[in-house]
């Protein structure tokens, strides 16, 4: 029955012999990512403090690493990799679309209010 699991991660770069082995492999990967995050969070290297797209480069790295972790938790621990395409797309794209929409709306509005606070009462006179 274990044959039903897809045992490749990193697009086939690493292939495990059994599902159990894959689980431990993914754990090691997630641990490495978490350690990188914590070390960067404690030392905050000066190089990464520059602004990229309105946020510190370091923060972008944290967000990207988080999404990487989320991907492997969903795909390997929750076995999304083994589900049919239709179920996977229904769950993942619905969530991603709505979450992106929500984040865009709220952060845009928050930034606007901040700019009203910091640079005057009327920001855009329509």
């Amino acid at each position: 029955m274990a044959d039903a699991h897809k045992l490749e991660i990193f697009r086939g770069l690493v292939k495990f012999k059994s599902n159990t082995q894959k689980i431990w492999g993914v754990l090691i990967f997630l641990t490495i990512v978490t350690v990188i995050e914590v070390v960067l969070g404690i030392y905050k290297p000066e190089v990464l403090m520059g602004q990229v797209l309105g946020m510190k480069a370091l923060n972008w790295i944290f967000i990207i690493l988080t999404i990487v972790k989320a991907y492997y938790i969903t795909w390997d621990f929750m076995h999304m990799r083994d589900e049919v395409k239709a179920l996977r797309r229904m769950v993942v794209w619905t969530a991603i679309f709505l979450i992106c929409y929500l984040i865009f709306i709220l952060l845009q509005e928050g930034g606007y209010i901040e700019s009203v606070y910091s640079s005057g009462f009327i920001k855009r006179d329509f």
């Binding site: 984040i103 709306i105 709220l106 952060l107 509005e109 928050g110 930034g111 901040e114």
Partner: peptide, 8 residues
């Protein structure tokens, strides 16, 4: 996202 809103 609400947290992000207040933070921004």
């Amino acid at each position: 996202a609400a947290y992000g809103f207040s933070r921004f």
